[in-house]
């Protein structure tokens, strides 16, 4: 479904992504972990072309993401994205936040969009906040709205870029619960996170990155019990034993 083939990316002289080969299948939950600056977020952001790749090829559902002829807006409809800092629209209510793209991009009527928005708000457990503004919500609630906003477009793929890193510790659970439910429903998910518990429990596959390279790919049980790469072993020992 998502295929990276020999992908390289440079910011000027800086080589951010190095020879990435990665295939993510339909219905798979892939968790990308690794130290800061290892290129995890950049990798994720290439998938919906928030970042462009410099070399190689990247396709989503058989469409070449880098090709100028690819209708990027059409591709993006099918890929929901959740950001570390939520990025809800502060001038719109929760409901309006969720309804905007379905109305403007998919051409849904107000009534249709509202019905779908309410359905997803219930799903993420905050139907009662429909008419609040984002500033009136806690971080965890805002992030759940952001997830509902992504889901309302009916995407086949959801991207999560450190969705819990900006949250108070107490709020992390409620967001992870929503993500777990989503994973169990068979959503194709690519998740950049430092939440090892989530990765271990939910991921079909762990991708470990360092210095722009994918160093290791493994199922969670294998990865946590016996990481093959020294760098991965070091990373794990640092974050698990403190």
């Amino acid at each position: 479904m998502i295929v990276f083939d020999q992908v390289n990316k440079y910011y000027g002289d800086f080589h951010v992504l190095k020879n990435i080969n990665l295939t993510i299948n339909k219905g798979e939950v892939v968790v990308v972990i690794g130290p800061s600056g290892s290129g995890k977020s950049t990798l994720l952001r290439c998938i919906n072309r928030l970042e462009t790749i410099s070399e190689g090829s990247l396709s989503v559902n058989g469409l070449n993401v880098a090709d100028k002829k690819t209708d990027i807006n059409k591709l993006r409809r099918n890929i929901g994205m959740v950001f570390q800092h939520f990025h809800l629209y502060p001038h719109k209510t929760v409901l309006e936040n969720i309804m905007l793209a379905p109305k403007k991009v998919l051409g849904q009527t107000d009534a249709e969009a509202k019905k779908i928005a309410q359905k997803y708000l219930e799903k993420v457990g905050i139907a009662d906040k429909a008419n609040s503004f984002p500033s009136q919500l806690s971080g965890g609630q805002q992030q759940r709205v952001a997830i509902a906003r992504g889901l309302a477009m009916g995407p086949e793929i959801m991207l999560f870029d450190e969705p819990t890193s900006a949250l108070d510790p107490e709020m992390i659970g409620e967001v992870l619960d929503v993500m777990k439910a989503l994973a169990h429903e068979g959503m194709t998910m690519v998740v950049v996170t430092h939440e090892m518990g989530f990765a271990r429990e939910v991921a079909d596959r762990i991708v470990f990155m360092d210095e722009g390279k994918v160093l290791e790919e493994a199922i969670p049980a294998e990865f946590y019990a016996n990481p093959r790469e020294e760098r991965a072993r070091l990373f794990l020992s640092r974050i698990l034993n403190h």
Binding site: H87, A101, A146
Partner: peptide, 27 residues
């Protein structure tokens, strides 16, 4: 207006013009 606003709008499939008009300019 924070850069993430444009990213969130564009990643949901809105065009540059729509994102500007509906998300960025009102803020």
């Amino acid at each position: 207006v924070p850069k993430g606003q444009m990213e969130a709008a564009r990643s949901s499939g809105l065009t540059y013009g729509q994102a500007m008009r509906l998300v960025i300019l009102p803020q």
